[in-house]
Design a protein around this nucleic acid. Structure first.
Lengths: 406, 406
DNA sequence: GTGATTTTGTTCTCTTTGCAAACAAAATCA
DNA sequence: TGATTTTGTTTGCAAAGAGAACAAAATCAC
């Protein structure tokens, strides 16, 4: 039951039903392919004539294509429909603290090539480097298809409407107009997004299809920071000032350790990679000291996880404590939003079998309802490159999204 | 950008554009009345002919009515349109721990009469009593209009689809089929909802109209429990298992006081009326002891607030501490969801001028962004009967809601 | 006071589009 | 070989939006 916004409504026109049904067909084919016209007619409870007309339109636009006929027990054999993904290309870019990753992928999120380079923190130089690499990638893989746009994932807050990076502490950016610069330099449309929302979009649009993908879920990223991409009613929550999802700064103990944000006892101060590393090294987290200490010691979160899995007690203890606190944080998300499921991304997801019991234990202790405590928690390992998949989803998703109405 | 749910989509028909535009007109008139047909045509960027046809339909259904012509500087004077509210009646029922309130109101939320009686905790007896009172109310005010339904607000979790009360600890209810019982007993349609969501709906549908009512906000109720009604994209968030909004059980300090829910350091254990009273009386909160202590002392939260406003130091200190903790909780909501504004309801809202500085201080200390820290926090005093208004909104809202599509 | 002008609201025609039925195609089965 | 079944296309009809024309009701200019 949605309220109509009387300042920003979209009124219906004569072609509105067509747009809606066209988009429904596109999504049905996308999730259930292969699918025949008769299948669509049955699922949509609509005449086959109507389907023919709408499918013709989608075929003409090359949004879908017609495959071979397929065996059927009786009657005329159906011609199956598929969404066209393999020759529609996307460039995904994931800018991170030390490395920047590029991926050329198709509309289904299947990678063609990937490359990486050392992150350049100067925005102008970074855009120049990216533009050069994008151009080269597209040159080399010219035959693979047409590039429909660039998805850009940055570690910080972004403004979807203006395309600006509002604040990216890791790179020292504040109010940088990255989207338009890159669009101008490459001549391609660019979509920009922060990491947690991009990961949520990757799950939503490129995750396991056909099955019971929920319309309400949360993607929690545990990295240098702790954030979340929140999806409610099949739509990402961005917030009034584009800063929704900062779950990393809900308190676990207001008298707890100092967080880099200035407050005390934030979830992030207990569970970020920096926090886990500090705990492992036996140091307290601090804004100035920790990064320096880590660079000197040369140790990373990946090492700690590897040592924990190898059986080193100190590493195991550090990870277990992180898991317990993370579980408490996840319990808060469950109590606050009651999502159908929760994804956990970040380096720590690689140690899922080790940390799951501690996470589940904490959730059981704090979840208010039995249904909440049973919320599926699903690891999304960093090896699947969720950020890059999210970048691809940024470009592909608008093609499949529901038309904005009323 | 919403994803279409391929299991629960609604396909468009020939009459879909009409339904959409009809509903847009209804909402424009509701929020901006008085409004002429020509005004509607301009706002909707549509021909006046179309408006005539749609308005005729709404007039025939008596959803709106035509008022007197009105002065205009030049040209033919417009006939103004208004939504019909005054003779469409609603019964709002607010079941609380000690008292149950009934209100007969019109579709605009304007009360006709109100009454109260001692809450009967046995569901069967309660339904019988309610049915009798509803019948009498409608008998007495027969001439005032037709009753379109009952809105029922209960202190606990409800399932919107089945109409059952899942859990209401204050009344000792668990899985009670209250909606259908009351519907059967009165012959009226009944909508059931928990208190925080009902309050949010009251703000959404009966709050200050015309002005800039946001589509993203949170209504925090501070009462025996602490909960929230969350509205995202103009839609209430119910969660996968109908338990979204339990913000009362996010931790402030996991080593903090025992909460009645079994966990430790919940926001509710610091800020509920019981917590404030315990603090005032110098006792620690406990599941068994506190209620008994309060009944013995005979003091209520209203008394403590009155004493604080009268200048009693101990009461002031108790309230201030509650306010500070509440501010921390609100900061978490701001960081997590970044709503455009937050309403605070419950008895403590009566002391707003006293508690606002402490709340704002806590928010400033913990909000991650300047925009978040500046989120408007609006008190909704209990004297306005937000729960009963919410009950009325439950019945009125479906008439005005956007059609479900795609 | 009379016609020009302006604004509102209705009516009418045209075209698009959904809808349902008829039709054509392509297969299996008796 | 014809009946049956299933798929996909075509066609005729009715509903509804778009826009123009028209009617109504006011003010304003002379």
């Amino acid at each position: 039951m949605r309220k109509i916004d009387t300042r920003r409504f979209v009124r219906a026109t004569r072609s509105t039903p067509r747009e809606i049904n066209r988009q429904i067909i596109l999504n049905l084919v996308r999730e259930l392919q292969p699918l025949s016209r008769a299948d669509l007619a049955r699922r949509m409870d609509i005449g086959r004539g109507m389907i023919t007309s709408l499918v013709d339109e989608l075929l003409a636009e090359e949004a879908i294509y017609e495959g071979a006929t397929v065996d059927a027990p009786r009657g005329r054999k159906p011609k199956m429909l598929y969404v066209r993904t393999h020759d529609r290309l996307v460039i995904g870019i994931d800018v991170r603290f030390s490395n920047t990753y590029l991926m050329l992928a198709d509309f289904g999120g299947t990678p063609v090539v990937m490359e990486r380079f050392d992150t350049i923190t100067d925005p102008v130089a970074l855009v120049a480097e990216l533009a050069e690499r994008v151009e080269r990638l597209l040159q080399v893989h010219q035959g693979a298809g047409r590039c429909e746009g660039i998805g850009l994932v940055v570690p910080g807050m972004t403004d979807q409407r203006t395309g600006r990076v509002l604040f990216a502490p890791q790179l020292g950016w504040r109010d940088v107009s990255l989207r338009d610069s890159l669009a101008a330099a490459t001549g391609l449309t660019v979509q920009i997004e922060n990491a947690p929302i991009a990961c949520a979009l990757a799950q939503m649009w490129l995750g396991q299809r056909g099955s019971d993908m929920p319309t309400d879920f949360v993607y929690v990223t545990v990295s240098d920071g702790v954030g979340a991409g929140i999806v409610v009613n099949g739509e990402v929550v961005r917030g009034a000032a584009q800063s929704a999802g900062e779950f990393g700064h809900i308190p676990l103990s207001i008298e707890g350790p100092q967080c880099l944000c200035g407050a005390t006892g934030c979830l992030e101060a207990y569970t970020s990679n920096l926090a886990t590393l500090s705990r492992y090294l036996g140091h307290t987290l601090s804004a100035t000291g920790t990064r320096k200490l880590l660079q000197e010691s040369g140790i990373t979160i990946v090492d700690v996880i590897a040592r924990a899995r190898a059986g080193e007690e100190r590493a195991k203890a550090a990870i277990q404590e992180t898991a317990r606190y993370l579980g408490i944080g996840i319990a808060s998300i469950i109590n606050a939003l009651n999502p159908a499921q929760i994804y956990v991304g970040g380096e720590i997801a690689a140690a899922w079998s080790e940390i799951e019991p501690a996470i589940r234990g904490a959730i059981n202790a704090r979840a208010l309802t039995a249904a909440g405590a049973a919320t599926p928690i699903i690891p999304d390992p960093a090896s699947d490159h969720p950020r890059l998949r999210g970048a691809a989803a940024l470009v592909a998703a608008p093609t499949f999204a529901a038309p904005r109405l009323a």
